[in-house]
Design a protein around this nucleic acid. Structure first.
Lengths: 342, 342
DNA sequence: TCACGAAATGTGATCGATCACATTGCATGC
DNA sequence: GCATGCAATGTGATCGATCACATTTCGTGA
């Protein structure tokens, strides 16, 4: 592949003049035209490695992605990448299946070797935080999570508030026994949603049963739902509402409830979280909490730009999610004997 | 950040010796220990830019992702990235919302500036092919698509065979009027699935109605389903089966059919494509065609490695997808008057 | 003890861009 | 006609690694 000297020779100018053409410095139109022609003829593209070496700016951002191809992380990642591109940054990804400390360290190591100017952590995983906290990374790290830890930049959607919205809606419908199907224990977002559920129940003086821990995947929602119906924990003599920490587990729940002959929302109301594009087509359509992941990704990049420009990042305005009402929730039917059994 | 000379000075050796330690050349254990200590003390990480400059190997692969965060592409991307990491390659992404020629050119331009050793195109988009075909990229390009074009490496899952499996299953159940909800016109995979549907119908001498074009998203499946039930094109006097080009559109279809009071599979059978984790929890659980995206991503990297090593890539063994039978398909009930109306 | 070859280490050039600074070209004013 | 100033262009150093080659160190056998 041609280099800047080849271009200069062909155009009959010095390499510096070619550099000026590349960087929009003042060059006489006639000269610029000759250089441009040479560039096209040689199919020349400046080497970003050489450029990064001397300017000490890589224009690259490292993105650490973990785990499964879930809707939220994937959306955030794409949106972030889009925003980064618009700002003139390249994104290099380091994905990992398991989130042990070793994998995290090696991912960070490789990215820092690339002299990325910042790190982005897409999945808020408590292990990931601990792993990174022990490293001297020397560049800003931004994450999409809710419980602002010291030392990390964070842009987030208010999971706590979202969960409260969902649970309050159920309480307002008259539900008094509201279960929670939680995301995995390692997830910061799952913890926040649980906290919101718990806070809202406690604020209303309602009982708080231990949350049921799932995997984010529909299968776990189904397994939990099957167990709940088997033991009768949900339905006529049990809970009349379930708040699921994401839509995928909610569809598993709906399936299990249907299998057990329970009607939604007749026998139990179900609320999800995320508003994935399919949730409006669930059977029944799912009441859920909408998160704007595209906006999240864009805001992450915005905040990052502020820090990279040496400005203090603005107060991390947490976006508030929105409750989307659909057919999976309905008023609880007050049964005279429920109070006794609860 | 420290460089190799700083480390050399601190360890009391030459920069070349440090380089040897980094590259596992022969260094006396005592010397190596001193160098390692200096590296740790300075928190030194070799600059991949400087390394790339002199070795003329970037160890980077450019990945071009387009469009929405769909399950298949996301899974493939993660799997590919994982495989690349295992092989010692970094992946740089260039995503784009629209797939016009200009966006594609600029994405390729940026990646080639990074001196990526290969390009990976995740979403097989006919416009993407045309856009890239016009560029002299000078590095191997691999794509996950089915209809092998000249000049592109391709690893794929046999969409054509998968579609035939699905349609043959419907035919064997006695269905004679089988509609197809197709993916977007720009999608190579969508075209292959349509071709499979068409081939199987023609092989059995069954009528081929024009396919209904969706967007891959559930909403489009719902809209198509609503229109089909409104006009009576599906149901008692119309089609008794629908082959949807992906699972998301299938859930939209199921929703629309349920809204119209049609039972699945009683009044119409539905088959999807992809086997996303939720499809077993649809109502009813969806018969679908399973694709192993993780395997696809890994095989893409494998093929790429062969080419990068100068070997001829092995015959691109197309993986064959697998039909997953679930409750959304059942034998057609032969109606005496159906033949007349068909 | 010394020569010898292999192992270990050091020296200077190099990759391809930008930066800092030097030089040339050209129009303007006196 | 010539000094002046600005615009345009050129020259050499630089970034941080590896490569090619030179040199030193070390262990071994005569």
């Amino acid at each position: 592949m041609a280099n800047i000297t080849d271009v200069a020779k062909l155009a009959g100018v010095s390499h510096q003049t070619v550099s000026r053409v590349l960087n929009d410095a003042t060059v006489r139109p006639a000269t610029k035209a000759r250089v441009d022609a040479a560039i096209r003829e040689l199919n020349y593209r400046p080497s970003s490695a050489a450029r990064a070496l001397v300017t000490r700016k890589s224009n690259a951002i490292g993105l650490i992605a973990t785990g499964a191809p879930l809707y939220g992380p994937s959306s955030t990642m794409l949106a972030f990448n889009e925003a980064a591109r618009a700002a003139g940054y390249q994104v290099t990804i380091a994905s990992m299946t398991s989130v042990d400390r070793e994998a995290m360290v090696s991912a960070v190591e490789v990215l820092l070797g690339q002299r990325v100017e910042a790190l982005v952590l897409i999945v808020a995983d408590v292990a990931a935080f601990d792993a990174i906290a022990g490293l001297e990374i020397g560049v800003p790290l931004i994450t999409a999570e809710s419980s602002g830890r010291e030392g990390f930049l964070s842009v987030s959607i208010d999971q706590f508030a979202g969960a409260r919205l969902a649970v309050r809606h159920l309480i307002e419908l008259g539900h008094r026994n509201i279960l929670h199907v939680k995301g995995p224990d390692w997830s910061v977002d799952a913890a926040e949603r649980e906290r919101g559920w718990r806070a809202e129940l406690e604020a209303s003086g309602l009982p708080v049963a231990p949350p049921l821990v799932g995997t984010w995947l529909a299968d776990s929602g189904y397994a939990i739902g099957a167990e709940l119906t088997r033991t009768g924990a949900v339905g006529v003599r049990g809970a009349t509402a379930i708040f699921s920490a994401n839509d995928q587990m909610a569809i598993g729940l709906l399936h299990a409830l249907a299998d057990a002959g329970l009607r939604v929302p007749g026998d139990a109301s179900v609320v999800g979280f995320d508003d994935i594009p399919e949730s409006v087509h669930y059977s029944p359509p799912l009441t859920t909490v909408r998160q704007d992941f595209a906006d999240l990704g864009a805001r992450m990049m915005e905040t990052l730009l502020q820090v990279l420009d040496g400005r203090q990042p603005l107060e991390p305005a947490q976006a508030t999610p929105e409750l989307i009402l659909r057919a999976s929730t309905a008023p609880a039917i007050p049964l005279p004997n429920r109070e006794v059994n609860a």
